[in-house]
Design a protein around this nucleic acid. Structure first.
Ligand SMILES: [Mn+2]
Ligand SMILES: [Mn+2]
Ligand SMILES: [Zn+2]
Ligand SMILES: [Zn+2]
Lengths: 151, 151
DNA sequence: GTCTCTAATGCAACGAGTCGCAATAAGGAA
DNA sequence: TTCCTTATTGCGACTCGTTGCATTAGAGAC
């Protein structure tokens, strides 16, 4: 069974209506492994189904997110990015200085999730985190820079 | 030395100009331990310094954030919230269902930071995280609900 | 104190995302 | 197939936050 069919079934099982708008958003998401912005999704859907409004895209994505089929994340590029929910989970390290983005494995966050469950009974959504900071390269660049300036 | 004076000094040391707009934003931040929205800050500043533009507030907050004096975080209330940077760091657990917000100690994230530094040489900004999920109370409520529906 | 340079502000226009409401259409019932 | 209920859409207005550009004013030099 294809990913697309699975997704359509999940939508119907949840009791929501399967509209062409929703299905076309789903299709685009299933065809693209990368992160997409709402505008990119709108443009790709319109290539095959031109009758689609901006609000419908946002509402479809909100629903798919609620159902756990899509992740939406602010990756620091000025607009939210959407990605089909994948297993196992992954996260991203993003350098504030050079914008370089690295994908990391969920294992690194798993113990955090367990601690929060154990200490607070809190079930954290650790599906797709964006962790900002400074990458290795930019740290050495910054320290050279400050050395040059300090004498 | 008061927190306010410290902050003003940090601003000047960084080579930026001390304008009345910036200083009044700083004053409001230093007087309020809580999270504030840009609009709340604007309103409080205007009570004593009426000549302040919305853009100036956002730009002042951006600068203070860059200097590490202020944290800005999306706590799920539809607008960004600002807080004076505190030591030691703290973070928040936020329930998506009941909106309850719990403050947690930085210790819970410290090992994550160490792992990212060790494995990737990445220096993560773990100053003030918002971690979304389901609180203890809402988990039990949800499981009762699904039991009632399943027969 | 005055001059000068340019960083910072005010303003208005813009962009992303949300929302209320009237019109439409999905999907279950008959 | 047709009908009915109501979830969903399209649209326009709105909010939060950002940006470009002309104007203002901090602060160092003299
Ligand atoms: Mn991703
Ligand atoms: Mn806080
Ligand atoms: Zn970098
Ligand atoms: Zn809750």
């Amino acid at each position: 069974m294809t990913r697309h069919v699975e997704l359509v079934q999940a939508l119907r099982r949840s009791g929501h209506r399967l509209t062409p708008q929703r299905e076309s958003v789903l299709t685009v998401m299933a065809e693209n492994a990368q992160h997409l912005t709402a505008e990119e999704i709108l443009a790709r859907v319109r290539a095959r189904y031109p009758y689609l409004n901006k609000s419908a895209v946002y509402r479809a994505l909100a629903l798919l997110t609620e159902l756990g089929l899509v992740n939406q994340t602010d990756l620091g590029r000025g607009r939210v990015e959407y990605e089909l929910h994948r297993h196992p989970h992954h996260h991203h390290l993003i350098c504030r200085r050079c914008q370089q983005m690295t994908q990391i494995d969920h294992a690194l966050l798993a113990t955090l999730g367990e601690k929060l469950a154990r200490d607070f009974g809190f079930q954290a959504d650790l599906d797709h985190f964006a962790i900002f900071g400074t990458c290795k390269k930019c740290q050495t660049r910054a320290s050279k820079h400050s050395k040059r300036h300090s004498h």
